[in-house]
């Protein structure tokens, strides 16, 4: 059995002559949580729709479980679309059973699993309620249950955190982790980097339809220069003093008159080297702050370095 669940091989898709996705390749490996990151309109949803066979690529090839996406492969996938909605006039348990049956689960088994999952999600009391009576967060949980009711091997979540309050976002993160621990492969798209940074084994960055990064979170962070913020009250020329350790720039002075600088550390240098150089030169430091890079910084850096600046991220 192949360990690659999903493979997109140089796929492109155009709408009205504009590329929504251009020459994108990616692989999702079994058992991993893969984050599919990019700003709004980057081509994430189009890529996911092609992954499921909802859209057909203009060019390139899609393989889901080693086959072209079709009815048999779809039964092994749970998909939570970005545009979310369920039948509002149906009872919660009936909606779950309906989607379970669509995915090949027997009605009785779908009911049993549905009630169990509702219990796990603290929604058992709402099983016989109509969906329209639920709050947005509750409805979203029900929708996640409909996505998972057939115990799919591969779970695709398109912008799962959008529209959720922080409490429900945390709850959803727990659900994603639990699904991964249960051995499921997860691919989720988001433009909120914090979730990806906390959850993902691997990330794929996409901007304006082009893939700009594919690797682990650590590798992505490695793309961002490590940075140190300094504030001094002495008059030494830091640009000259610290130039061997990286790219130094002078920032605006602080309110108390301290001089502020930032150094993006070059390869082979680290914050200790900078601190030692400052101490040796008798620089009067009032602030020395090595900055830990975040995925957001990596994303901005990667987007800008690929010429796709001015992107929208959160």
């Amino acid at each position: 059995m192949s360990d690659t669940i999903l493979r997109l091989d140089r796929v492109s898709k155009q709408f009205k002559g504009q590329y929504a996705v251009k020459d994108v390749s990616l692989e999702v490996e079994r058992g991993q949580i893969t984050g599919f990151l990019g700003p709004n309109g980057a081509g994430k949803t189009t890529s996911l729709r092609m992954s499921l066979g909802i859209l057909t690529p203009d060019k390139g090839k899609v393989e889901l479980f080693g086959k072209t996406p079709g009815a048999s492969t779809l039964d092994r996938v749970g998909f939570l679309p970005e545009e979310r909605g369920i039948y509002r006039r149906m009872k919660v348990i009936d909606v779950i059973i309906f989607f379970g049956r669509l995915k090949g689960v027997e009605a009785g088994e779908a009911r049993r699993r549905g009630l169990k999952m509702l219990d796990e999600f603290d929604l058992l009391h709402a099983a016989e309620q109509k969906v329209k009576t639920l709050s947005k967060g509750m409805a979203q949980k029900v929708q996640i249950i409909t996505t998972l009711i057939h115990q799919p091997e591969f779970v695709i979540l398109d912008e799962p955190f959008s529209g959720l309050d922080p409490v429900n976002q945390k709850a959803l993160e727990r659900i994603v982790r639990a699904q991964a621990e249960a051995g499921r492969t997860i691919l989720f798209s988001t433009h909120v980097m914090e979730h990806a940074e906390r959850l993902c084994d691997k990330i794929v960055l996409i901007a304006k339809g082009n893939k700009i990064f594919d690797g682990t979170v650590a590798e992505a962070l490695g793309e961002v220069p490590r940075r140190v913020h300094l504030e001094t009250t002495s008059e030494q020329n830091l640009l000259e003093l610290l130039a061997p350790f990286g790219e130094v720039r002078r920032d605006d002075d602080a309110r108390d008159g301290s001089h502020c600088s930032t150094i993006d550390l070059g390869s082979g240098s680290d914050a200790q080297d900078v601190l030692k150089a400052c101490v040796d030169a008798d620089v009067k430091l009032t602030r020395f702050e090595p900055v830990r890079a975040h995925l957001h910084d990596a994303f901005v850096h990667l987007v800008e370095s690929h010429g796709h600046g001015e992107e929208e991220t959160a």
């Binding site: 009815a71 679309p81 545009e83 909605g85 369920i86 039948y87 989607f99 669509l102 929708q143 409909t146």
Partner: peptide
């Protein structure tokens, strides 16, 4: 109504 309730894409991931 289904379009308004955004059920269709959910359906399209389960059926052609």
């Amino acid at each position: 109504e289904e379009k308004g309730n955004k059920v269709l894409e959910m359906m399209m991931s389960s059926a052609r």
